[in-house]
Design a protein around this nucleic acid. Structure first.
Lengths: 342, 342
DNA sequence: CATCGCCGTGTAATCGATTACAGCGAGGTT
DNA sequence: AACCTCGCTGTAATCGATTACACGGCGATG
């Protein structure tokens, strides 16, 4: 009764040798039961499984990693953890990874940070895979590590990319505005050179063309996805002799800044000007008027990236590029060309 | 020239034996140079350090963990990654941990989730410490693991807690409103039983008393920190015969919902009703009118928690409870009792 | 000049799992 | 009856670092 049999009660976690002793087998057999159960005789397997259950045995991750070179951890690199946009994506990633027994390590890193190199060294050792959300590859150290790019695609790389069709989505916004009768539609741009911006800007032009509207460079206003640039755009609009009747802001944050500034100047949205955004962040629905925008399936984006990575880790080859569906969410900030504007 | 000396170029990371061979010493010495340099003779130390640099040697974390039982990882448990409130806190934690060579693993977990038990097992093996943001302790499995509670304090535990003085902050909001001449100040509460709510509600009552105002239970409205409960509160206000002239909402999200609904009903904020919030989330400054609120030093909260944990890991004993300073941020949503209200 | 102590270093056990290889017994084949 | 195969299990090497212990050499001490 008082064998040296270890118990669940004991403070120290059970090791594989404890399980082996209790089940009367070797450690190799225990390991096999856990890894490839069908290679073990049913009776033995049952004995081992019972011992595992009795002791609450969980393999030591460090030992397992050392031997197998698998960490069961994934590194997620975000450019700005404070940006609301990422939180739901992270949740999608986390839930998917957790279900597959993988942990998520987050690095919050400006793409320009020198830590990108340092992180590469970390990645090679400490994780099985990487999900990049900041549009930049890690340093050369991380060459061999399975990687996925999410949202901000990275040109010229060989690993899978997951994103939305920014161009088509932008087209859809313009089509929506045009269908409301708007003929002068301005575009509030994102930071120059950014992949997302390039695509959305292209979609804007295509949208105009599809609606039979002329492209007017004077109606493209600079912005950088920040609130301040939205506010600045309002000044531009007010100063404009031939005001646009609608503005497509390439991010919700800018759209919200713009709307607020317009309201302060005494304009009515959408009575005087319609405004549409992009992203559908939480506050898009909460602001007044509620913002018409493009909903990105953020949680699904996260899930898809995690799944693609898991597939790669399992030896499969996910598609080089997969685009998820967006949705035009029409709320109160866009409406027919108003009487005053007409 | 073509010794078997390993080079930086080679794809495989250098091991300690490679360094030892290059420096002409044993692995024990290499390890010592890295861990306790002053126990090694200067000449030897220099040789080893050069070899380390030449090979770009970084100790294998798995091997190190296996032997030393230290993972250099910290688990952070958040109740809801989607909640804007946490992102900046996470950033504060991450930057502090990273500086100390620790990684951050995030678990996104509803406090009621059964995964809390499972996570405890994970915590015991995979991390050196835990930071809890969800007001719940992990399962019994995680007993020995150094832990810190952040923001939502946990009663009756022995580990250090970091938070703000919710009660004093709430008092300050009420004092601010009272100083503007308000005498009927309503309180929009948080979820019943929540630690934060209990404290803020107490602060509200104390604030009334300090201003010589009577406490009226009818002016305490139920809420749960969500937008919807803010909107619902607006209905209550409008239906009230003796309307309050100011409302203290115990979260910014509720305050924003309330303001929006009031505006839709044709009321002016702060002309007809002043509204103050709590937290100072990003959108508090962006909403119209910009919200008067209590700023929680979120980044500092994260930093402080990480530092306290690092201290514990280093064998020191951080204070059982430390409260960080908040700040009353007066913006446009509160003002003197308006002519209409008077 | 023998002895002691200390400093610096090396040897080897150890952390806990995975897995190649070998061994062994039962059943099938000729 | 001798031999082969196949299925199951055990032995032991291995992953890469840390560290207790031992040992050699040297200056200080009596």
């Amino acid at each position: 009764m008082d064998e040296s049999a270890p118990t669940t009660q004991s403070g120290v976690p059970a090791r594989i040798t404890d399980v082996a002793r209790l089940a009367g087998v070797s450690t190799a057999t225990v390991s096999r039961v856990l890894a490839k159960p069908d290679q073990v005789a049913p009776r033995t397997r049952a004995r081992v499984q019972e011992a595992v259950a009795r002791l609450g045995y969980v393999p030591n991750p460090a030992a397992r990693t050392l031997r197998s070179q698998k960490t069961r951890m994934v590194l997620v690199v975000v450019p700005d953890l404070e940006n609301v946009f990422f939180s739901r994506i992270l949740r999608g990633i986390e839930e998917t990874l957790a279900a597959a027994g993988h942990g998520m390590i987050i690095a919050d890193l400006d793409p320009a940070s020198p830590r990108m190199e340092e992180l590469a060294a970390f990645a090679r050792r400490q994780v099985d895979g990487v999900i990049l959300l900041n549009g930049r590859r890690l340093g050369t150290e991380a060459e061999g590590v399975p990687t996925i790019a999410l949202c901000e695609t990275i040109p010229g790389v060989s690993f899978p990319q997951i994103a939305v069709d920014n161009r088509a989505s932008a087209r859809r916004v313009v089509a929506h505005l045009a269908s409301l009768g708007h003929r002068r539609i301005a575009y509030l741009a994102g930071p120059e050179g950014n992949v997302l911006e390039v695509e959305r800007a292209a979609g804007y032009r295509e949208g105009l063309a599809a609606a039979g509207l002329a492209f007017d460079p004077a109606l493209v206003w600079p912005g950088d996805y920040t609130l301040a640039s939205g506010v600045a755009a309002a000044g531009r609009l007010l100063a404009d002799g031939a005001r646009p009747t609608a503005v497509f802001a390439s991010s919700d944050v800018m759209a919200i800044g713009l709307v607020g500034a317009l309201q302060e100047a005494g304009l009515d949205v959408p009575g005087d000007v319609s405004v549409a955004g992009f992203d559908d962040i939480e506050f898009a629905a909460m602001s007044r008027p509620a913002l018409t925008t493009i909903r990105q399936p953020r949680r699904d984006l996260g899930r898809a990236a995690a799944e693609a990575l898991l597939a790669r880790l399992a030896g499969r080859t996910p598609p080089a590029l997969s685009l998820l569906e967006t949705e035009l969410v029409v709320r109160a900030s866009t409406g027919p060309v108003g009487p005053r504007a007409r």
